[in-house]
Amino acid sequence: MTAEMEFEFDLVFALPAAGADEGAILDALFEAGCDDAAVGLGAPGMVGLSFTRSGGDAETVIMAAVDAVMPALPEGSVLREVKPDLVSLADVAARLHVTRQALQKRDMPPPSLGGLYRAAEMPPYLEHQPGKVKDALEAARGWFAAAPAAQRINARISLEGAPTAA
């Protein structure tokens, strides 16, 4: 049996072209049991939800959150991305509460795309860093633990298409 752990992840959805009522979306998300999510509605046509949820397997936990969110969104909404997957050094630095420059001075995995790194590849490099970087890694463990599942789900979205709200 896999031990329970907390996973930190974000879900990003594209909303249908016909404008959605933000208040209705927030109410529907609350009723769907997503009252633990931080919801972002800042970008037109998009909604982001940030979760910290426990479970034995990141992919199962993330997909359970997707399944809870989808019925609360307007018909035609599409899951666009699960984070963390591709991250900047600034994203990692913010999670570790260090400066981006502190990470630039360290040995890191090679970037994957346009200066972005795979979050799933970062922990082994960070574990071998001295001082504050290594010490801060434990506090960000749930975020890094969600990264391999986010990467797999994003690959499926790219290859098979994203789940949509019916």
Rank of each mutant, 00 (worst) to 15 (best):
M1L: 08
V87Y: 03
V87L: 11
A139E: 11
A102R: 13
I153P: 01
A140H: 05
L86S: 01
K134C: 09
M63N: 09
D36E: 14
A28S: 15
I153Y: 05
E22P: 12
M122T: 06
M1D: 08
A166W: 00
I157T: 11
A90G: 10
V78D: 00
L26N: 12
E4N: 14
P84V: 11
A24Q: 14
I153N: 02
L126G: 08
A58Y: 06
F144Q: 11
G131C: 04
K105R: 15
A20Q: 11
T164W: 00
E121G: 07
A165W: 02
M1Y: 06
A146S: 13
Q104H: 05
R106L: 13
E75W: 00
C34K: 10
E8A: 13
V61G: 05
G115K: 07
V82Q: 01
A65K: 11
A94T: 13
P74I: 10
A140F: 09
S77C: 04
R152I: 01
V66N: 08
V12I: 15
V69K: 07
Y125C: 06
A3F: 13
Q129W: 00
M108E: 02
P109W: 04
A37T: 06
V39L: 06
S112T: 13
D10R: 15
S54A: 15
S54H: 10
R152P: 00
I153C: 09
A37K: 02
Q151R: 14
I157H: 10
K132V: 13
G55C: 06
L11N: 07
A155R: 13
A72Y: 02
K83P: 00
K83Q: 11
A147E: 04
A90R: 14
G45L: 03
D91I: 08
R141S: 15
A94P: 00
A18T: 14
Q151G: 05
P71W: 03
S50P: 01
R152G: 01
M5E: 15
P124T: 07
G19W: 07
K105L: 13
G23E: 12
L29E: 05
D91H: 15
Q104G: 04
R80M: 13
S50K: 09
A140R: 03
L15P: 05
G56C: 01
T60R: 11
E4S: 14
A38S: 10
L113I: 04
K105H: 10
P44T: 12
P111F: 05
E22R: 15
A43M: 11
Y117E: 03
L79P: 03
F51E: 05
A38F: 08
P109T: 06
